[in-house]
Design a protein around this nucleic acid. Sequence first.
DNA 1: CACTTGACCTGTCCGC
DNA 2: TGCGGACAGGTCAAGT
Length: 289
Amino acid sequence: MPELPEVEIVCMGLRRLIVGKTVLSESHDSDKAFPNSPGDVGGFLLGATVVSVRRRAKVILVDLSTRYTLLVHLKMTGQLVYVDPSDERFGAGHPNASLIGALPDRSTRVTLEFCDGSRLFFNDQRKFGWMRLIPTNEIDTLEFFKRVGPEPLDKATTADVFVARIKKRLGTTVKAALLDQSVIAGVGNIYADESLWGARIHPATRVKDVSDESLRLLFSELVFVLALSIEKGGSTDKTYVNAEGKKGSYIKFARVFRREKQPCPRCSTEIVKSRVAGRGTHTCPVCQK
DNA sequence: CACTTGACCTGTCCGC
DNA sequence: TGCGGACAGGTCAAGT
């Protein structure tokens, strides 16, 4: 499930792989892949050169020379994978296609072909993800970007900023508040559980019942797990891969996420799985009260 | 208004 | 072996 670290890793790869490349053709399986975009997406993309790749929250922004930007949201199972013609994974029909991760595959929804013959595939098993083509100067007018909270890894986003924002959600659970993109950007289920364990806060606690000191600790734990995950290439539970098709390893370092029935790294009590804010939630019943 | 739940999807896993 | 159902979770619309 791509969250901030996974999306950041994809962006870093795309910066290296596609900036400066010009689109030769585009194809997609269904117009549902491009909600709220011009009808003739292919026509708008033809001849456009990739100028830069940015990230805001969990959204990838590919700025084009045409003053349009391609927005991409990977949601849960989306992938953006670049393949060069010299790569053995290039093109379908390979005898060991699924084994080597050949592309396109049956989850491929959009294909961008560049002038040098390389391709960028947007794959999405569950079809929750989307791409959107929009004039670059209209990005700030989109409701999501107007509402979204600050980036946790920005220097300007201090613990004070975080505490002030989360305390606007006094009546809800601290986990629901962390997952709310308008409070703080980029946090999903994995890093919510991991940071709450780090701060010894039970996810179902109401925000009003958490001390300022604990909220400040929560922010520093959040920054810690996000930065650690970026260092480890992100979390691959099932489907996540980076722009080169490679998996991340954070999940090996996770303390509670997907570790139910395993010992808590702090006190050895069995990690339990429950449901908080409508999500599978992992906690240590002793460390997190 | 503040907050919670359901819908969107499909692959995988579990019990029978 | 096959089948029904639960589950996975980011975001927004709908419901309480």
